[in-house]
Simulated assay, not measured.
Amino acid sequence: MTVLRLGTRRSALATTQSGWVADQLRAAGHEVELVEITTEGDVSGGLLTTIGGTGVFAAAIRQALADGRVDVAVHSLKDLPTAPEPGLVVAAVPPREDSRDVLVARDGLTLGELPPGSVIGTGSPRRTSQLAALGLGVEIRPIRGNVDTRLRLVSSGELDAVILARAGLARLGRLDVVTEVLDPIQVLPAPGQGALAVECRADRPDVIAAVGILEDADTRASITAERALLAALEAGCTAPVGALAEVVDGEEGLELSLRAFAGTEDGRIDLRRSLTGRYDDPEALGRRLAQILLEDGAADLDRPSTPASRPSEPVS
């Protein structure tokens, strides 16, 4: 192998993440060249829910891999569809950043300190649903744009606050703007949030071996459970979903503790469940918890609500 061509989106966050991966590979003795690729998600001004979801950020880079224009791709794991991509493999999942969401609010306010009627921006149905379920009396406004664009909505006074992933701000060195880190008890993150996926062609054992040094077993186990849950829920409902798996000490060794949420975007139903399972079988854990959520009502969340069928209080 001569030079590893590493495909990345052009945003500041994407190039920062890809630059970190490139630096790790260079430290291991590889020559790396960054190749910037424009995706549909980068050029469209529409909300993700209207332009095809998070997969719009990955499709162009995956095509470049398949075509042989790049050897390696770096994705935010939450941007990857759960369905496998034929011919490609996630060869490494590096150590995860803090997966939690954060609030960036005017005047240094926390979520509980924002007065009723405050306007909070987010482009995520998952965040919208969980915020609405808290019953704080705030208005939630859909937004798009990179990190700087979203932060300017607060500094300009157009919004009172925005919610972002802590991992992105950490990688950009912008944690100073955070006014509160949100407890997952209130707002569970997206499956895979805070983690990176290093992807390459399945027929390139040389590349797979080269990037293998980046692999973190605990992060791989956690995101595998979260994405297995998401995949199983996607087959049974279209409700907003949050999930977080963590490695814990069990009586017989390491285990995975998985928490998940599914609800309605208006916050009327906020269904939360948790389960602990084997560290070495994260997919089974994710599927089991998804089945519990579906049996307990997640399968009905995307059906039209009626006075007879819609609960008056959130399901817990």
Rank of each mutant, 00 (worst) to 15 (best):
A167T: 13
V187D: 05
E158S: 13
A167F: 11
A167S: 15
P189W: 06
L175D: 13
L188W: 06
L164D: 04
A170T: 12
L159R: 10
L175H: 08
L188A: 11
V187Q: 04
I185H: 11
D183T: 06
E158A: 15
P184T: 06
V187N: 03
A161R: 02
R171T: 03
G173V: 01
A170I: 03
R171V: 12
V181S: 01
T179W: 04
E180F: 04
G173C: 08
I185F: 01
D176G: 15
Q186I: 00
A170W: 00
E158M: 06
T179D: 03
L182A: 02
I185Q: 14
L182P: 00
R174H: 12
L188D: 06
L182V: 02
L159M: 08
E158D: 11
I185V: 13
P189T: 05
D176I: 09
Q186S: 10
V181N: 00
R166K: 15
D176E: 14
D183W: 09
P189N: 09
D160K: 13
L182K: 00
L169F: 13
L159W: 11
T179M: 02
L169R: 07
E158T: 15
L175Y: 05
V162H: 07
G173S: 09
L159H: 08
P184C: 09
A161V: 11
R166W: 02
P189S: 08
T179I: 06
T179L: 09
R166C: 02
V178D: 03
G168E: 14
A161N: 05
L159V: 07
L175P: 04
G168V: 13
A167N: 10
R166P: 01
R171S: 07
V187I: 15
P184W: 07
L172I: 09
V181L: 00
V162E: 09
P189Y: 06
P189G: 10
G168P: 11
L172A: 05
L164S: 06
I163T: 10
L188N: 11
V162F: 10
L188P: 10
V187F: 13
L172G: 03
D183E: 14
L175G: 15
R171D: 12
A165P: 15
A190S: 15
A161K: 03
V181D: 00
I185R: 15
A161I: 11
L188V: 09
L169S: 03
D176H: 15
Q186E: 11
Q186Y: 13
V181M: 00
A170E: 14
D176F: 14
L159D: 05
I185L: 12
L182C: 01
L172R: 02
I163Y: 09
E180G: 04
V181W: 00
L172P: 03
R171G: 00
G173E: 04
G168W: 13
A190C: 05
D176Q: 12
L169W: 07
D176S: 15
L164V: 04
V178K: 10
L169T: 03
E158Q: 14
